[in-house]
Design a protein around this nucleic acid. Structure first.
Lengths: 255, 255
DNA sequence: CATTCCATAAGATATCATCTTTATGATCTT
DNA sequence: AAGATCATAAAGATGATATCTTATGGAATG
């Protein structure tokens, strides 16, 4: 039997079992079933969920319904679907990127401001810096230094330097070894980080690099409180710049 | 024309336009188109996306493909779909609950620990307390007091008291008036907050209530630094309790 | 206020197209 | 002749299409 028993307990009969009232769609019930099985540890990443035909047969529904359910599970990042022989749906390993985009969409739809995002980013990054100072490994220290050297080499290439700075901040979060903070930072960067940094002057770029160097130093010296304070000030500065940029954009659009 | 122009620029011909290679599915291309239109501010919440038939006709695909795309957009929280006359798909207003569940699933799939979640929660809640002290309105203060009185009345009803405490923490986040922090806290609570609190003694419950009262006071007195410090200690305490509970559960399962 | 009508999503069924893995077989090389 | 390599076919799966029927929700109608 390829399908996990947890999935089967609802599809125990050949006849359709969902027909009562049809208050919610059949596909959403399948989705709920799989999600709950996941939370209940009856399913784990990598487990085979079955092919479209499998699911249709087991739940006593048409292939369309099974497809709808798999489309939803796929969008939710719960299932990975492969085409071709040996294909079908499997329980996904986590997908931070997909999740980051989902958050980005939701923040966009909610209409949050840059200030709100940057404040949340400050919350995440200050703790990340603190925990990085406590938990960073030699590999983390080396990675931070590599990024700093790379940044210094491309300091005049504004787009590349901006990307490098983003990677440095992410590397600090990775050094905290807290995957929740990492995922949240990726999400927020996806929304907040500019693709082009028009107001970045060489002077500012050098000051930012100096702060990053000091931050890497504090982390390596395991000065958690110092790293937290410096990151706090640093992100406050970034926040001020972003808010100013946004205000400038708005006034541009008005005129 | 009911559909937004941004959607149309890809469906400019009657003949199928996606046929080249079919390297990615037609439905995913429609999804990408809508998502990008959203990010590019060509679409905003409430905008009509069209009915299944509309989309199928405009993109030159079958109704099933349009369905698949709508299923995905729905799962991503981008589209709301209504049945019946006058129905169809519209761009969604934000849906924090959906998002919270998505995060919960991803954290589950990634296999993060309680400690990681509680650390992230500390980051969010300490800043929320700080900002609440700065931005809370009279309505926020009243809401916090109402929740405290409610908690005192039901302090012996453990499940209800646990829920009330969760609501208090959420109310603090709401008093910060930062929607990103609110959404993130909802997500984390969805994963971390126990449905039943077996190790909660009356003594601990009273101490928690006292801390909450002091926190509400500091917020009302606009003592941002004090509120932050107190929340920091409070969440650290909660973290210690949760980690201990989890360790106890693990050992239970082993024996 | 209840009823009817109708547009719409939800669901079912059948069929074909396309993709991907796997097995097979022919050909080339040693 | 044995083995390696590449082309090809088969099989199993999703992707896509067409055409139905059914359930639902809203608005017009009585």
């Amino acid at each position: 039997m390829s399908l996990h028993p947890a999935i089967l307990n609802i599809a125990r009969d050949t006849a359709p079992i969902f027909v009562a009232g049809r208050s919610v769609s059949l596909s959403s019930q399948i989705v709920a079933e799989v999600r709950d099985a996941l939370f209940a540890k009856k399913l784990k990443p990598g487990d085979f969920l079955g092919t479209e035909k499998d699911l249709a047969a087991r739940f006593g529904v048409s292939r369309i319904v099974a497809r709808d359910a798999l489309r939803t599970l796929q969008a939710l990042g719960i299932a990975d679907i492969k085409m071709g022989k040996g294909g079908g749906a499997r329980v996904s390993r986590g997908n931070p990127r997909l999740f980051a985009e989902t958050l980005a969409v939701q923040l966009d739809l909610t209409g949050v401001t840059v200030a709100e995002i940057m404040d949340a980013q400050r919350a995440i990054e200050t703790l990340a810096a603190e925990l990085a100072a406590e938990h960073a490994t030699a590999a983390d220290h080396a990675n931070l230094k590599r990024l700093l050297d790379e940044a210094e080499a491309i300091i005049d290439d504004t787009p590349a330097y901006t990307r490098s700075c983003r990677d440095f901040h992410l590397a600090v979060a990775e050094a905290s070894h807290n995957r929740v903070l990492i995922v949240q930072l990726i999400s927020l960067q996806h929304v907040s980080w500019p693709t082009e940094n028009r107001t970045l002057t060489p002077q500012v770029a050098r000051r930012v690099l100096a702060v990053h160097r000091e931050l890497a130093n504090l982390i390596e010296m395991r000065d958690a409180a110092g790293a937290r304070r410096l990151m706090d000030d640093h992100v406050k500065m970034i926040r001020a710049r972003r808010v100013a940029e946004r205000a400038h954009d708005e006034s541009d659009h008005c005129c």
